[in-house]
Design a protein around this nucleic acid. Sequence first.
DNA 1: AAAAAAAAATGACTTGGGTCATGATTTTTT
DNA 2: AAAAAATCATGACCCAAGTCATTTTTTTTT
Lengths: 231, 231
Amino acid sequence: MPNNPHINSCTVSYDTLNCFNKLTDEELLYMEKNRLEINYKEDETICKQGTFASHIIYICKGLVKIYVEDDAGSLILKILPKGNLIGLSALYDGNNIFPYSATAYQDTKARLIDIHVFRKLLKSNAEFASEIINVMCENSIQTFGRFFSLTQKQSYGKLADIILCLSDRIFKKNEFDLDLTRKELAELTGMSTERVIRMLKKFKDDKLIAINKKTFKILDEEKLQHISQYG
Amino acid sequence: MPNNPHINSCTVSYDTLNCFNKLTDEELLYMEKNRLEINYKEDETICKQGTFASHIIYICKGLVKIYVEDDAGSLILKILPKGNLIGLSALYDGNNIFPYSATAYQDTKARLIDIHVFRKLLKSNAEFASEIINVMCENSIQTFGRFFSLTQKQSYGKLADIILCLSDRIFKKNEFDLDLTRKELAELTGMSTERVIRMLKKFKDDKLIAINKKTFKILDEEKLQHISQYG
DNA sequence: AAAAAAAAATGACTTGGGTCATGATTTTTT
DNA sequence: AAAAAATCATGACCCAAGTCATTTTTTTTT
């Protein structure tokens, strides 16, 4: 994985807005004319697994959870900050169905681009399509990382992983206000809430992190990296 | 997930050879001139995680295991029969590195397409790029399914899942010669070999499957489906 | 500011599935 | 066809992580 010494479950950093630079003025105008801008409140559903994907969704602001559900359980595939697209997986011909649900962790602003328009642009502008392929590559590599992390690492490794991910990729600081509950953090690591609480205490006792109310601070990034990799 | 009542870890069915129909004669010729045909023996490495991806690999014949490795362990991302492409994830600009390894489960014949040629075709032919996007969509949905299966289902569900996958998608019959060892089957389900052996016995005792040497036969597909979904 | 509700914490107990040891088969090598 | 090496199979034991019950703290509502 690029720039990363080991496999982790980080989200992507790429801002997909760049893709749209490849469109001609005419195409941009065409797209602009066929898009909506929508605001979602915290916990609101942005798209629902199994429903018809009428739009590709660009996240302008906020933080979104992408997950799949079934009788067997529920799995968070990724969390996406602004600059990402939701629904690319629904693009393929003959499908048009969201393979996952998305809900807003925070108040979120999104642009909805008509999927037919999007597909038309792909079919007419190879440069644009190439950029979307880039994005999809990054997405898939990121999914592999999270897949690996959740299936191969032990609990401490998974937790260290997600904390580093939040710090490095989502909030981009060592100290950040985590407005996720312990329960949400547990969901994100695929573990029970109690387990996460106990581990956070351990990390605190070991001076790897400091927690003050909702404020997380990473004290020993190196050690966390090590735990993420070997623990 | 299309045509599927519940999430599973099946491989894709799409034959990517279709993509190349979108190329002009000239482009096809250009590609043909820049490809190699290589045979791999069982267990041979086709590509290695972390190495430079000089080619996109089309599987003409055989069966391939795609996996990632790290200090923390090893994870099979997917198994690919003929008609699939290896290395699409390495396409994105600035990367060019295989994010996974591939080895042949059986003797395999592959066509290696120069990655620069491939990328050039993507940038010049939007129809072709669109088809590749289709393939990538299917791939990502399939990965989500396997991700879900391995993280959310219990052992019997995972095993039922993989047996159905082999039957429905790989061998396309109810009865097939499985030239995978119990150990490989265990790897594929992310469990210990002993666990798999015990579960197979249970499935046999319960008359869900019959095993004669290497020949597997599915006796009660419906029940297996049920176990895959709820078990 | 009091009451209600939600979230965080902690201890006790359970369990799914891994590990290890050993023996029986099957496959491969010589 | 005998020997060696894998693989398959089974029992005994263990442990990481889940579940459940209860208490404390924080947040939200009235």
